[in-house]
Design a protein around this nucleic acid. Structure first.
Length: 304
DNA sequence: ATGCATGAGCC
DNA sequence: GCTCATGCATA
């Protein structure tokens, strides 16, 4: 029960996939997929493809949760300042626990459940766009969605952030202090991905105005040199840490080979693959999900 | 910087 | 069960 992972499809493909694994890699060498029920497979985003055509994301409840209308795009001004600011701004001493502040990054870091539970009305406790702020595209123009512009902004953002002496993690936390409606803290990961353009096009568009707002605030504050003992945070002790599964190279190669043949295996196929590779079914399922997502990310910086 | 994971919203 | 935004953990 292993040569039929792809059900009625045929063992040929599988064998081929496995052969590829043995051989080493896979790339373009595997589209012999004669008649695979290839589903609508969202294409990769190419900067050259021009603006949004986010057919993909826009049809999935994308309500622009993080889209901010309050920010206009005038990111062409380079701050000639090389001042360094201590960290984030605002909310110096009197920052108890305001009603709408997203301070989860400071206090209840660990459990995302806690974050979600404690701020049920947050646009994105860590997650998603929901009924929150259905602000379509207020005053957005091509420049806001133009890949080239996003790329340029990301680059400028990074440079200016570094000049300010602020880390990606700092920016993420500081975002909450901005107190922009519907804008909470973000992780270092997300800031990093924004800078490296490894987020979806929509995600980039949504985050840009927010990061832009932060950058302007930060530079303004840096100019007016202010010092406040904004005491950072102390991570709460003892919390069950999430353990990250590590898929070994051989298994990963197999998965890649399977993916090349069929990016969207059915549940049964996933189960079969999981068994064959001796991995949890869920691990395999998530791997495919992440692989698909990864395939759709921007990352056009390296393509230029 | 990136791999594996979670959870909301949707089908 | 999927997509999508996002994050913890880790290389």
């Amino acid at each position: 029960m292993q040569g039929d992972l792809f059900g009625g499809l045929n063992d040929g493909l599988l064998s081929r996939a496995e052969a590829l694994v043995d051989i080493g890699k896979h790339p373009g060498a595997s589209p012999p997929v004669t008649g695979l029920p290839q589903l609508k497979h969202d294409m990769m985003y190419h900067p050259s493809m021009g603006p949004p055509h986010p057919d993909g994301a826009s049809r999935y409840g994308w309500t622009g949760h993080a889209r901010s209308h309050f920010v206009n795009n005038n990111d062409d001004e380079f701050g000639p300042d090389d001042l360094r600011i201590d960290l984030s701004f605002s909310c110096p001493h009197t920052c108890p626990t305001p009603p709408v502040v997203r301070v989860h990054a400071f206090c209840c870091m660990n459990s995302m459940m806690a974050a979600a539970a404690s701020h049920p009305s947050l646009p994105h406790p860590h997650g998603h766009p929901h009924s929150g702020h259905p602000h379509p595209a207020v005053g957005m123009h091509d420049a806001d969605t133009d890949p080239r512009e996003l790329e340029a902004f990301a680059e400028r953002f990074k440079q200016r952030r570094i000049k300010l002496g602020v880390t990606q993690a700092d920016v993420g936390k500081a975002l909450a202090n901005l107190k922009l409606p519907g804008v909470g803290a973000l992780s270092q990961s997300t800031i990093c991905r924004f800078e490296s353009l490894t987020l979806s096009h929509n995600n980039m568009i949504a985050l840009k105005p927010i990061l832009q707002a932060w950058l302007e605030e930060a530079e303004a504050q840096a100019r007016s040199k202010r010092r406040d003992p904004d005491a950072p945070n102390v991570l709460p002790a003892g919390e069950k840490k999430r353990k990250r599964t590590s898929i070994a190279a051989p298994e990963k190669r197999s998965l890649e080979a399977y993916f090349a043949v069929q990016p969207r295996p059915s549940g049964e196929k996933i189960a079969a693959i999981a068994e064959k590779l001796d991995l949890k079914k869920n691990v395999v399922r998530v791997w495919f999900c992440n692989q698909r997502q990864k395939q759709k990310r921007m990352k056009f910086a390296a393509q230029h």
